[in-house]
């Protein structure tokens, strides 16, 4: 592998994300910042999911559970125990990581659609649980005490700060994705994706590798959850565990190309861009969901490898570059 090619595989994704981060800073526009936040959030979540879906080949339909669970845990500490947003995010990330570790030990034995179904079940069970769990406010959820923002120079400053933290988390997700992809651990994951039994025969300890992939794919979503609920000022069960968002993440990864670093980034960007256009367009705004559905169907039927996968197949030289 030539070194410039290896670097390009990281530089390209970094440039795309840097562009999204700089756009609102340069234009100094609050609504651009909000859009950029949404896109960065999608990129961070989709890149995390890609570690499990794209590298390891396990289809999680309930990945949003880590976002919701981590978010709840973090916000609980920030709100009820006066922790800083940093400590709260750390707690949320760790909580999601531990949840993934425990779940992974159990459900990663399931293959194919059974795994996908189990992840749906877990997400729904967790949502129903949060609905009943008094510490997390039950069905009402938790409302952040606005005085919390004072420590960060008031609400406006705090919101500005969340954007920069989100940018940081997105870069972190991207780096994790890259380093997993180009490591020995990642090669083991790819082998599992292609043929788990054959991978084990070659010495890949699949149960451990899968569990760690699951954990790695859960930590950033947990932290993003804390940050987002902190920014929003409240959390309630349907907002924390929307099954729909889980599937949107799958669509993003699929759209850009699973198993590549750049794919989920482009997919998240394109999907959020499309949604942004559809919800604001006079013609499409009422049937926005249907149009997204048609687009998804066309992708699944005609370019299942996603945009990047399609390019890689057409132009073999790109295989190294678009890692």
């Amino acid at each position: 592998m030539k070194s410039w090619q290896k670097h390009l595989g990281l530089v390209l994704p970094l440039l795309v994300v840097a562009g999204v981060v700089l756009w609102p800073i340069i234009t100094d526009n609050v609504s651009a910042r909000e859009s950029a936040f949404t896109i960065l959030k999608a990129i961070a979540l989709a890149s995390s999911l890609n570690i499990l879906l794209g590298y390891t080949g396990y289809v999680s339909f309930g990945h949003i559970v880590f976002y919701g669970f981590g978010g709840y845990v973090g916000l609980y500490f920030v709100n009820d125990h006066g922790w800083s947003i940093w400590a709260g995010m750390l707690a949320g990330g760790i909580a999601s990581g531990i949840l993934a570790f425990l779940l992974g030990k159990a459900i990663l034995r399931l293959r194919g659609a059974y795994f996908a179904l189990a992840t749906i079940g877990i997400n729904e069970a967790m949502k129903a649980f949060a609905n009943n769990f008094d510490l997390f406010g039950g069905p009402i959820g938790m409302v952040l005490n606005f005085s919390v923002y004072k420590a960060y120079g008031g609400a406006a400053e705090a919101l500005k700060m969340t954007f920069y933290i989100m940018a940081g988390l997105t870069f972190a997700a991207l780096l994790i994705s890259h380093f997993v992809r180009s490591s020995k651990f990642g090669l083991g994951l790819l082998a599992i994706r292609e043929n788990e039994d054959a991978a084990e025969v070659m010495g890949v300890i699949a149960p451990n590798a899968k569990t760690w992939a699951y954990v790695l794919s859960a930590i950033i979503p947990g932290m993003v959850g804390v940050l987002f609920f902190f920014k929003n000022g409240h959390v309630e069960p349907p907002v924390a565990f929307p099954l729909h968002s889980s599937i949107e993440l799958l669509v993003m990864v699929m759209l850009g190309g699973q198993g590549t670093v750049l794919g989920p980034i482009l997919g998240a960007f394109a999907y959020q861009g499309m949604r942004g256009y559809l919800v604001t367009s006079d013609f499409f705004k009422d049937i926005q969901l249907s149009v997204s559905g048609v687009v998804l169907l066309l992708i699944v039927l005609f370019i299942p490898a996603g945009a990047i996968g399609w390019l890689r197949h057409r132009i073999p030289v790109l295989r190294r570059v678009l890692a």
Binding site: V59, G112, A116, V251, G293, L296, L297, V300, P304
Partner: peptide
Amino acid sequence: HLSSLLATFSVNMII
């Protein structure tokens, strides 16, 4: 599986 799951989900979204 991912393909058929997403294909039927896209029908869900359309409806």
